[in-house]
Simulated assay, not measured.
Amino acid sequence: MTSFRQLRADLLLVSPIYCSEFLRGYSELLSGAGVRHVSVAGAGVFTGSAAEARMRGHALAGTIETYRLSFESGGSMTGRFLVTRLDYSGDFGGERTYTLALESSGAVVAA
């Protein structure tokens, strides 16, 4: 498992507007409709794990894969994500750190 120093998850829900009401000067959001989207950003220290190698491979290939994300609070979420950003940094002779961003593709289940 990858260890994150910092992890942030945002849930974005965009609902369509009921057009006939919009034309009367106001809009009404429809419950249960629209687009659900989860963005996750994290940062950590590379440990050389197999999970990190797989994630790097997914980022370079642009593949959507299933991830189980665990948070320090004990919660987790599982879903299919695309690695949209993977940045490396580090000093000569020091530890290598990374930041990453994941975007959901399909349903995400919180546990």
Rank of each mutant, 00 (worst) to 15 (best):
V109P: 00
T47H: 14
S104R: 00
A51D: 12
T78Y: 07
L30C: 07
R96D: 08
M55W: 07
A61S: 14
V38D: 01
V83K: 06
G90C: 03
A110I: 09
G34T: 04
I17D: 08
V83M: 04
R36K: 08
G48W: 13
Y26K: 10
E65Y: 02
A59K: 10
L100S: 07
G48N: 06
Q6M: 12
F92E: 04
G93V: 10
A51S: 09
V83L: 03
G44Y: 05
R5T: 11
E52H: 15
E103A: 14
E95C: 02
G32N: 10
G25H: 09
T47V: 12
G25L: 12
R80V: 03
A59H: 15
G32Q: 04
G62V: 07
L11D: 07
S76T: 15
A33R: 06
A51H: 10
S105D: 05
A33H: 08
R68I: 14
T66N: 06
S49A: 07
E52V: 05
Y98K: 05
Y26A: 12
V38K: 02
E52D: 14
V108N: 00
A9Q: 06
T2M: 14
F22I: 02
R36C: 02
E21C: 00
R80Q: 14
R24S: 13
S15A: 15
G32F: 03
P16Q: 11
A50V: 11
E72N: 13
D87T: 07
S89G: 15
Y26M: 10
F71G: 03
Y88G: 05
G42F: 10
L86P: 00
L30D: 05
S3I: 13
A9C: 07
R36M: 04
A61N: 10
V35Q: 12
G57R: 09
T84N: 01
R56K: 11
G57M: 03
T63Q: 09
A53H: 13
V108L: 00
F92H: 06
R68S: 10
V40T: 04
V35P: 00
T84D: 04
G79E: 01
G32W: 08
V109F: 15
E103N: 05
A101M: 13
A107N: 04
L7D: 01
T97Y: 15
F81R: 12
A41E: 09
G44V: 02
M55E: 12
F81S: 05
A33E: 03
S105F: 15
L12A: 13
R56T: 04
A51K: 07
